[in-house]
Amino acid sequence: MSKKEWPLWEVFIRSKAGLNHKHVGSLRAADAEMAIDNARDVYTRRSEGISIWVVPSNQITASDPTEADALFEPANSKIYRHPTFYDVPDGISHM
């Protein structure tokens, strides 16, 4: 018996209105419609979400782990990029 695997899909779930879709995992499905159905069954059965995105895994371009040093190291020494050098005036809430 020949065994052909269905394409892999990455699943993103929006947990509630106002929040962004977050990557939750991946699954296999024959097409986009079925990927949504499968994602509903696999990833939202405990009321985890109100919206689903699926993206074919092979459409994702990822950074190269071996280049991590070059990509991410330089940011470590630049603490001034964090907005932590300001005094928050009295009376400003929700900061």
């Binding site: 699954l27 296999r28 159905d37 069954d41 059965r45």
Partner: peptide
């Protein structure tokens, strides 16, 4: 037949 359908049918 696949994990996803196993879960779908039992749901």
């Amino acid at each position: 037949p696949i994990l996803e359908e196993d879960i779908a049918l039992t749901n």
